[in-house]
Amino acid sequence: MSRRRDEGRGPLYRLYIGRLRREIHAEQVPRHVAMMIDGNRRWARQLGYDTAAHGHRAGAAKMREFLTWCDDVGVRVVSLYLLSHDNLAKRDTRELQDLLEIIAELADEISRERDWRVQHVGRAEGLPDDLSRVLREAQERSRANTGLHVNLAVGYGGRSEIVDAVRSIIAAHGGTGGSLEELAASLTPEQIGEHLYTGGQPDPDLVIRTSGEQRLSDFLLWQSAHSEFYFVEALGPDLREVDFLRAIRDFGSRERRFGR
């Protein structure tokens, strides 16, 4: 077990957690947090596991913890980047199969937690039938829930999402008999936002990425135009509650101008 996974179990750590919680005020908590969990494979390699599946499974367990942290602190929407559209084509077949099974288990478990509502964001085309079915069932099972809204980005790509939104707008406009000139004249950022996978949700206030990587990787490109970013050095499975609370505290200390 890594040293970092042993941290956070002593009384001093618990005292520090309590202090951080007291420093976070409800009005400073982001409504929507997007999480890019990264470093699962590196974590597995560092611990000597023979497959990346151990890292992905540990990362999935950490995401369940992460959701409880978000729920407990008052976040209303969480988006988890679990599998990109590019991953479907580029990952090793064995690793991808393991990852798809782990994502299916995670989606099913989350849909049964507390009063959480699950929504799949991404293209269903290209996903295995079994995973698509589990995602649909998780979404339907939790549809009436009113607690934490959890977006599971699976088979997701930010550029593809924008393309799909524009196609949806064009199709809707064509159905009314309107011309392309009229569509061009009436198109607004708000209209595109309404047709994204996350239409009707607040844009992410805070985007967190683990493992020290500092890039968007095609995640929520449109929605993150005014997001704050927070990068954590810890590999995904080693993320601690203290890391999360520091991110929330840091967010609350920033002055968000939105271009003003």
Rank of each mutant, 00 (worst) to 15 (best):
A165D: 09
E182N: 03
A124C: 04
T146E: 10
N151I: 00
R5G: 02
I192H: 03
W116Q: 09
P128A: 06
L82F: 01
E95S: 11
H120E: 06
L88P: 10
L83Y: 05
R91F: 02
P128R: 06
L100W: 11
F258L: 11
A52G: 06
P128C: 01
Y197R: 06
A144H: 08
I208N: 03
A165R: 09
H32K: 01
W116F: 14
M1H: 09
A153P: 01
I208T: 05
E65F: 13
P202F: 02
F251W: 03
R5V: 11
H54I: 00
Q139A: 15
R31P: 00
T198C: 06
R167W: 08
G177T: 00
E125A: 11
L220K: 05
I24N: 12
H226N: 07
Y156I: 05
G193F: 06
I192K: 01
M35T: 01
H25A: 12
L196E: 08
K62D: 02
G177K: 00
G175W: 02
T146R: 14
R123W: 07
R9G: 15
L67D: 11
L106D: 07
R123M: 08
A172P: 03
G236W: 15
A185E: 13
L206K: 02
Y49H: 14
S79G: 04
E213N: 15
G200A: 14
H195F: 03
R94M: 13
R159V: 06
I170T: 07
L148W: 07
E27G: 03
D38C: 09
I192F: 03
A138L: 13
L235Y: 15
A144R: 09
D86G: 03
Q191L: 12
R143Q: 11
D108N: 14
G59V: 03
E137H: 13
Y230P: 00
H56Y: 09
L131I: 07
R167L: 12
A165P: 12
H25P: 01
E109S: 15
H226L: 07
V166W: 10
S224G: 00
G48V: 08
L239H: 11
T210A: 09
G59A: 02
P11T: 10
Q201H: 10
R42E: 04
E125V: 09
S84I: 00
L235S: 10
H195A: 11
A171Q: 10
E228G: 04
D72C: 05
F244R: 13
L20Y: 12
D92L: 04
A124F: 06
Y81A: 00
Q119R: 15
L245D: 11
G10P: 15
R114P: 00
S217P: 09
R240D: 12
S227V: 00
G122I: 02
Q119F: 06
H32T: 04
S217W: 09
R94Q: 14
L148D: 01
E65H: 13
I169C: 01
L20R: 14
Q119L: 10
S224Y: 00
E7L: 14
H54Y: 07
P30C: 05
M35Q: 04
L47V: 04
I248M: 10
H173Y: 04
G59C: 02
S186P: 01
D130Y: 10
Y49N: 07
Q28P: 01
R257M: 08
L131F: 10
R4L: 14
S179W: 03
I169A: 02
E95D: 14
